[in-house]
Design a protein around this nucleic acid. Structure first.
Lengths: 186, 186
DNA sequence: TGTCGTGACGTCAGTCGCTGTCATCACCCT
DNA sequence: AGGGTGATGACAGCGACTGACGTCACGACA
């Protein structure tokens, strides 16, 4: 007999997402999440820093993916091309987890506290991408701006992808990038 | 005899900023802020939704300023030109409150919870600017992108302005906009 | 001038997010 | 067999935040 069921962290993530969808974020208690996962409140806080973080377990993996894609872009690629290739790669990973990503996004957009957390995750992502660009030799005001613009495009493409039906993520990214070019040139 | 000293809200803002600088954000209690302002904890929460919001009282005014500037830009101005003129206007207002803005920024950058709040305020700003652009007849993917890019430039210009000595805000905005053009074109 | 509503504040009690501390016990290594 | 390790439970406690209710200066209005 095992003393504890495996994958406590995953069970907590799943229980939290379910409860946030059922009753809303503020109406659900950490103790309730833990109970549904067969654990205690104290154990929840050993796995996640706070009540919000339980929804953002995949952020680190996404960051690694983006950074690796930027670093792995061909040397001849311009900074923006490197970032776009990273966004397309991330989009492909997203398409696989379609339903989960949509449910998660529905909860987050409904609660300002969770939107805050998502925004700081995106800012961290942008900072990581900027670092990857600097490692490609891009100078600093440009690297930062390029990363910031890329993440903005990513965010908008994601929202359009969630809203629309089965649109291809890569196409949204390229369209938005074209619009961005047009707008900044004016 | 007056029953209460006037400007309770302002006293709370001042006391909070002082204490956050003296002891750090997490180490100061809402009860301590209220006590320094000669009030009770309960009254603090009547003026501000939470412990962070006390630092962001000026956000609404900044939003009004930006929206008015975008709306007031000449009809011949391109969307990006309208946004830039708004940023320059906001920068001028910022230059006047120099020391206060720097102290406030020092506290915010030192604490992730406050950075979260600042990011959502900036996102709200971007949404308001996008709305103002739409009212000028700019179509929606472009309006949103333009506002998003403008706020990103604003954020970076503000950071450079805080770090550097007495640099002119408007110059920073224009330089960054040039870099953004270069980077997105690539 | 008396009265009455209103708004800003105080007081109190309570919930919940989050933390520190210590005990427990299956598992692994030797 | 014995000891170390890591994940968990149990418990106490702090502080952020809320709801309900009482208090009192101030202004409107008769």
């Amino acid at each position: 007999m095992v003393r504890w069921e495996p994958n406590a962290r995953g069970r907590l993530e799943e229980a939290a997402l379910e409860l946030y969808l059922e009753r809303g974020y503020e109406q659900t208690t950490v103790a309730e999440i833990a109970a549904r996962a067969g654990l205690t409140e104290r154990t929840f806080f050993r796995h996640f820093a706070d009540k919000r973080e339980v929804l953002f377990g995949g952020a680190a993996a996404l960051e690694d993916l983006l950074v690796a894609a930027v670093a792995g872009a061909p040397e001849t690629a311009s900074p923006m091309e490197a970032v776009v290739s990273a966004l397309v790669t991330a989009g492909a990973a997203l398409q696989e987890r379609g339903p989960a990503a949509r449910r998660r996004h529905a909860v987050i957009t409904a609660h300002p506290e969770l939107r805050e957390r998502e925004l700081i995750k995106l800012a961290t992502l942008a900072e990581a991408v900027a670092g990857a660009l600097r490692r490609r030799g891009v100078a600093d005001p440009g690297a930062h701006l390029c990363a910031e613009a890329g993440i903005a495009v990513f965010k908008m493409a994601f929202e359009q992808w969630v809203a629309g039906g089965g649109v291809a993520f890569a196409g949204l990214v390229r369209d938005l990038l074209g619009d961005l070019r047009t707008v900044t040139a004016g």
